[in-house]
Amino acid sequence: EVTIKANLIFANGSTQTAEFKGTFEKATSEAYAYADTLKKDNGEYTVDVADKGYTLNIKFAG
């Protein structure tokens, strides 16, 4: 089991951190699915992958 950390960075400057656990593939998939649910209210997003994929910096356009 691994932990994927998602740093969520919103257009208004606020930030939030979420963690997803499971296999690497499952946790990564859940992180992207979570970002997709936030897209409606926060706009499109870009992802900067860090720490060999264990950290995702997800920035929303607003």
Rank of each mutant, 00 (worst) to 15 (best):
V47F: 14
V47P: 02
S14F: 11
A18I: 09
S14C: 05
V2Y: 09
V49G: 06
N12P: 05
L38D: 01
T17F: 07
Y32A: 03
V2C: 04
I9A: 10
Y45V: 02
T46M: 15
E25V: 13
D41Y: 12
T15S: 09
L38C: 04
K26W: 07
N7A: 06
K39E: 12
G22L: 01
S14Q: 11
N12V: 06
G13N: 15
Y32P: 00
D41E: 15
F60M: 01
T37D: 15
K40S: 09
E19Y: 08
T23Y: 14
K21F: 11
F60T: 00
F20K: 01
K21M: 14
K5M: 11
S29T: 12
T37Q: 12
E44S: 10
D51E: 06
Y54K: 11
F10P: 01
E25L: 05
K52A: 13
D51H: 05
E1F: 09
K52W: 07
N57K: 07
K52C: 04
F24K: 13
E19P: 05
I58M: 09
F60E: 01
F60V: 01
G62C: 03
T17Q: 15
I4C: 02
E25Q: 14
K40A: 06
V47A: 10
A11L: 11
T17K: 11
N42T: 05
A18M: 15
N57V: 14
D36F: 05
A61R: 10
I9E: 05
D48P: 01
T23N: 07
S29I: 15
T28F: 12
A6G: 12
Y34G: 01
N12D: 07
A6Q: 03
Y54I: 10
G22R: 01
D41F: 08
G13T: 08
K59A: 08
G22Q: 03
Y45L: 02
Q16N: 10
T37C: 03
D51N: 09
F20V: 02
A18H: 14
T3G: 05
N57C: 04
F60N: 00
E30H: 07
F10I: 04
A11C: 03
Y45G: 01
A50L: 14
D41V: 15
I4Y: 01
E25R: 04
S29Q: 14
G22W: 01
A18D: 09
Y32I: 11
G62M: 08
F20E: 00
N42I: 05
K26R: 09
A35V: 14
V49Y: 12
I4S: 00
A50I: 12
Y54V: 14
G43Y: 03
F20Y: 06
D41S: 08
T37L: 04
N12G: 10
T46L: 10
Y34R: 06
K21I: 07
E44I: 11
T15N: 14
K52Q: 09
T15A: 06
K40V: 09
A18T: 05
I4E: 00
N57W: 08
A50S: 11
T17I: 11
G43N: 04
Y32Q: 11
A11R: 10
Q16F: 10
E1G: 15
A61C: 04
G43L: 04
L38A: 06
N7C: 04
L56R: 01
N42P: 01
T37K: 14
A31M: 08
G22Y: 02
